[in-house]
Simulated assay, not measured.
Amino acid sequence: MTAPQSELQRIVSALQASGLTVEAVDDGALIQHGESRVALFADADHQGGVIVRLHLDLDLYVEEDSLPEILMGMNLLNQGLDYGILNLDPVEPDEEDGEPDEDAPLAFAVLGRSVLWLPDLGVTELDRLREHLRRFEAEVTDAMERTLHGSKGLSA
């Protein structure tokens, strides 16, 4: 069940009013925060309130043969995250001639994800959403930058 458009519009308007660059897209919104673009989706909760999902595409991709090491590293990183998690999403293979290449290795995108339940869209809850969004983006980005530019890499 999708949240009424007016709820998503209220969230977008509140984020724009706080100075964030927000662009409405199909069923959600894109929020520009520095170099990052966070996708935001809102769904009505059947028990009341709104469930807000945040997705941060990190532009990092791993191939299937690296999964054991990557998963161990992501598990360790996720233990230190408070506002989101790192997740793998399968990437559709490119089809050069209209046919998928069955021999191509599977690839996965590394994404940051977070979910926040808002009991209502009042000022206090919208402020909490802004703070959660800020901390989520900073926490995931910082964790990935430390890992990629540190000495340990993504492997455990």
Score class of each variant (00 low, 15 high):
N78I: 01
T124C: 07
E99Y: 15
G48F: 05
I31L: 09
G153R: 03
R37P: 09
M144I: 10
R10N: 04
M74G: 09
D89Y: 15
G122W: 00
R128V: 04
V12Q: 00
F108Y: 11
L71E: 10
V62L: 07
V52W: 00
I85H: 12
A14M: 01
V62H: 06
E99D: 15
V12D: 02
L121E: 00
P93L: 07
A156V: 07
V22A: 02
L118F: 00
E96W: 14
A104T: 12
M72W: 10
P119C: 03
Q5K: 07
M72T: 12
G34Y: 08
Q16F: 01
P68N: 04
H55P: 09
D43R: 14
A107V: 12
Q79K: 10
G49N: 05
L111Y: 08
N78M: 02
T147E: 02
H46N: 13
Q16E: 05
G19D: 03
L129V: 03
A3D: 02
R130Q: 09
D43W: 09
P105I: 07
G150M: 01
M72I: 14
V38W: 05
L60I: 11
I31D: 05
V50S: 04
G73V: 06
G84N: 03
D97M: 13
A17H: 04
S114C: 00
G48E: 02
V115P: 04
P93V: 07
G84S: 04
D101Y: 11
L30P: 09
G98C: 08
A44F: 08
G49D: 05
T147R: 02
L60D: 07
Q5N: 06
T141V: 12
P90E: 08
L106T: 13
D103F: 15
G122K: 01
L77G: 04
D59W: 14
E96I: 14
A3C: 01
E35G: 12
L30K: 12
A109E: 08
